[in-house]
Design a protein around this nucleic acid. Structure first.
Lengths: 68, 68
DNA sequence: TTCAAAAGAGCAATATAATGCACTTTAAAA
DNA sequence: TTTTAAAGTGCATTATATTGCTCTTTTGAA
């Protein structure tokens, strides 16, 4: 399964802030391997992992109502 | 870790649509046990699980920029 | 083109998410 | 109060997410 939008958001935000994967891993408390997997579209991260990454980047994980 | 907002959103949406946990489990393809755990605040679901539940309820998992 | 930093990938160990089954608890209607 | 459908829990198994280590690939600046 793909999480294109989630991945793209994290990646864009990280790059906008000029933070490397390594630094984000440290800041967020998520393992570097896990972050690499996620950003390269390989993983199926847990809510906790997503939330940790979001926290470090000023992003909040949420559900949005789909418009028709 | 808590995912209060995510849980609340799923639960409210499910109840608004008058769907039982059992039905949502069937519709979404998520195991009933998994859904129960999630809604009772016990779990740490994967992105795939969250997405499946969201899909069945017309909700999209996303990151929102935190306002100061 | 070279070189260094950043990103991506294979492997293996450990932790834990997903799941079904059976049982208990809760809540709402008769 | 009784009933029962819905929700929550304990346990065990299987699948897989997380992680570090090491190595390869990519990328951008000199």
């Amino acid at each position: 399964m793909h999480f294109k939008i989630l991945i793209q958001t994290i990646k864009e935000r990280r790059e906008m802030l000029q933070v490397t994967q390594e630094t984000l891993a440290e800041l967020s408390g998520v393992g570097l391997r896990t972050l690499k997997q996620f950003e390269s579209g390989k993983g199926n991260p847990t809510a906790e992992t997503l939330q940790k990454l979001g926290d470090a980047l000023g992003l909040e994980l949420c559900f949005k109502i789909k418009e028709l």
